[in-house]
Design a protein around this nucleic acid. Sequence first.
DNA 1: AACTGTGAACTTCTTCACAGCC
DNA 2: GGCTGTGAAGAAGTTCACAGTT
Lengths: 217, 217
Amino acid sequence: MIQPRPRTIPEATVARLAVYLRVLTALADGGRSTVASGELAAAAGVNPAGLRKDLSHLGPCGVRGVGYEVATLHDRISRVLGVERSRACVLVGIGNLGTALSDYAGFGTRGFEFVGLFDAAPARVGRRIGGHTVRPMEELEEVVAATQACIGVITTPAEAAQAVCDRLAAAGVRSILNFAPVTLAAPPGVDVRKVDLSVELQVLAFMGQQRLVGEPA
Amino acid sequence: MIQPRPRTIPEATVARLAVYLRVLTALADGGRSTVASGELAAAAGVNPAGLRKDLSHLGPCGVRGVGYEVATLHDRISRVLGVERSRACVLVGIGNLGTALSDYAGFGTRGFEFVGLFDAAPARVGRRIGGHTVRPMEELEEVVAATQACIGVITTPAEAAQAVCDRLAAAGVRSILNFAPVTLAAPPGVDVRKVDLSVELQVLAFMGQQRLVGEPA
DNA sequence: AACTGTGAACTTCTTCACAGCC
DNA sequence: GGCTGTGAAGAAGTTCACAGTT
C-alpha cells in the first residue's frame, strides 16, 4: 500500500492555511459561495500561485475555470488543521499578556480550550477570567494529568519560564508556546515554539531602516 | 568606491541578532568576558555555524582560537540594530494585550519609546499606564506628527484594524506591527508585520500531531 | 589545540509558466 | 475564457566541512 501523497505539510503552509481559514469564515459570513485563488490570495496577503500550491497539499479541492467552493474549502481546511477536535491547554502566568490570551475568543473557535490558568502570585490566585479561576502553581501537575492537556502556554516573566517549562514537560505536555523572552530547553518529544514580541518590533524597525538605505526616494 | 560587503542583512539573521543581544546582556551581567560560538548558540537555541554566519554580516568580530568578547560583541550588535537610538512608537488599542505591551519594560531597553497610547473607548481614555495617559483617537494624527513617530502597533479588535492602519499610514508612520487577526493592506513605503497569536497556537498543535504520525513511539 | 570565518552543498520555500479541465 | 494544479526554475535560508588564525 502506497501513500498517495506525502503525509507531511510544510510549516509555512500550515501557518497560511490558518489564515485562509479565517478569510473563508469571513467570506461565508458574507454569503459568498465561491472564490478564486486570486481573490483569496489578496485577502490573505499572499501570492495566488503559492496559495494554490498550499491547497494542493490537501488534494484537489477546487474546480478549474471556476474557483473554490467556500463552504467545502472551509471544511477541508478545518478538518486538516483539526479545528473540530478540542485540545486542552493550560496557561501559566496571568499578567496582562496571560489575561489577554485567556480572554481571547479566537482560540475557542480554533479548537483550543483553556482548562487551567495558573499563577505563582497569591494575589492573582482565585481571580476569575473568561469562565475560569486562576489556580496556584501547586495544582499544575494534577490539572494537566486530569485534563490530559497537551499544550502549555507560558506568559511568565523570563526568570520563571524555564522552571515552568520543565514542570509542564514532566507533567506530560507535548507542545509549548513560549512568550517569555528566553530560549527554553525542553526534552526530546516536547516542542517549544517561541513568540518574542520585542524581537518582532526590532525586526520591523531594522528592516524599515534598511529599506530606506536601499531605495533612496 | 566599492561596498566592502553587501549592506543588507537577511531578515532571519536580524531576528537572531536580537536574540543574541539578549543572551549577551545576560552573560555580561553574569560577569563573563568571552564566549565561544558553541555556547552562545546553545543559549540562543541555534546551530553554531549559523551563528557564526549571522555574525559575519557585521564583519569579523571574534578572535580565532578564542571566541567573542562579550562586551564588544554586545556593542557591535547594539549599534547595528540601532538599539541606542530612540524610536518613537504609538500604540492603538488598549485592551489587555495593548496594556501588556505598553507596560513591557523590554521595549525601552531596545530603543523603543511609546509616545502615545490610543483607544476608541471613552471609558479607557484618561487611564494611566506605564507613565503614559491613554488618549482619544482624535489626537492620533497630531501626536504622530508632533513626535515624528515612525512605528505603530495595532492591538485593536479585527474590525477596527484596517481603519487604524490607514490613519497611521496617512499620518506618516512607516512601519506597523499588527496583532489584530486580519491581513492589512498598506500603501507602498509602509510595511506591515503581523503577529497572529492564534495562528501560532494552530501551527504548534498541528506540527505536534503531525510529528506523532511521522515518528511512531 | 581551539575556535572563527566562509565557500560549497543542501534543504526549504517561493514564484513562474503552462498544461489540463470546466 | 478563465481558473486550477503542478513541474520546473529561482531565491532564501541552513548546515557542513575545512582553511586560516591566534
